[in-house]
Amino acid sequence: MSTVMLEKVLVVPTELFHELGHFQGFSPDVARYFEPLVSSDQISYRPRGDMEEDPSFKQLIPYCLFRYTTPSGEVQVFDYLRGGGVGEARLRAKRSVGVGGHISIEDAEAVNHSGDVYSEGMRRELEEEVSINTPYTESAVGMINDDETEVGKVHLGVVHVFDVGSPSVEPREDDLTEAGFRPVADILSELDRYESWSQIVMRALFG
């Protein structure tokens, strides 16, 4: 099994998510889910390879969008094509508007088990995947759950929007190809080319 599949990632019991209130698609009610999940004593770190096949757990994923508004008022979103590297195989060759990934046990060790593990994991994932060369503001705007796909059954997304001062976001990973800012209208017109989470969040925020 690959190193990626052996990596221990943060998970929460799917039952706990259901107790807080199951939904399909997008929920703007971050407060209802996020803090109870990340502060729960039911959080654990388990091998990613096992968790990708076990819908009794949800892997918690920061899903970060970069939004730029041009001087003329046109709203654009950073998007890219997933390459064929070591990431989630079931999402390869799909376009995406989300940057981010798993929170790992290494993130917990980096903050000595006493700090904000989620924020550390999100910071690390962003630093690995993109270079942000512009001022920005960030806010958590919603949650994504998609039990209609095999990938979605084992993941739960926290949607973060980064409003950037200029379109100066560049990919750092070779697997992020054809990357750049595109008008929201263009993305919405081609949503069938995008992974399901991107379709869900684009319809919820911009549709």
Rank of each mutant, 00 (worst) to 15 (best):
V201S: 15
D192V: 12
G73T: 04
L16V: 13
D116G: 00
Y63F: 11
E150P: 01
L176T: 09
A140C: 10
K94T: 15
R32A: 11
E129S: 09
M143F: 02
P71W: 02
D107F: 08
S39E: 14
D175Y: 12
G85Q: 11
E195F: 03
G84Q: 13
T134I: 08
I61S: 05
N112E: 15
R48A: 03
G152P: 06
L10R: 15
Y63T: 11
S196Y: 08
R123E: 06
E53K: 09
G115N: 01
S139K: 10
C64F: 02
A140K: 10
D41Q: 13
P71T: 03
I200G: 00
D192Q: 14
E148M: 11
F78T: 07
A204P: 02
P28E: 09
G115I: 03
L16C: 07
V159I: 13
V164A: 09
D107N: 15
R67F: 05
S2V: 02
S196T: 14
G207P: 11
P55C: 00
K58W: 01
D163V: 14
L126M: 11
G83V: 08
T14D: 13
R90F: 06
R95A: 07
V117N: 01
L16W: 11
D186L: 03
F57E: 01
E15V: 13
V30S: 04
G121P: 04
S196L: 07
H22D: 15
E88V: 12
G157H: 08
K58F: 05
V97H: 02
M143T: 01
H22Y: 15
V86L: 11
Y118Q: 00
F26S: 09
F23P: 08
G100N: 03
S56E: 04
V12R: 09
G165N: 14
V30Q: 03
L191E: 00
G115C: 01
P171V: 00
L10T: 11
S104P: 03
S56F: 01
S189P: 02
I105N: 09
K58G: 03
S166N: 10
V11A: 15
V184D: 13
R82Y: 09
Y68R: 03
I103P: 08
R123Q: 08
D50S: 05
V201F: 06
V111P: 04
V201Q: 10
Y33F: 10
T137V: 12
K8F: 06
V99G: 02
S27M: 03
E88W: 14
R82P: 08
Q24R: 14
E19F: 02
R172M: 12
M51D: 00
C64L: 05
E178C: 08
S114E: 10
S139D: 13
F66K: 07
L91T: 08
E128V: 03
R124M: 01
Y68A: 02
D54M: 00
F23D: 09
H113M: 06
K58C: 05
I132M: 13
D29Y: 06
A31P: 07
V201K: 07
L205F: 06
K8Q: 15
D175T: 11
E52N: 05
I200Q: 00
S96K: 05
N145W: 01
D192W: 04
D79Y: 05
E88C: 14
F26M: 06
E19Y: 04
P47L: 02
I105E: 14
G87C: 08
T137S: 12
G121I: 03
V141P: 02
T149W: 07
G142K: 00
W197N: 12
A110P: 07
K58D: 03
I144R: 00
G142M: 00
V130R: 05
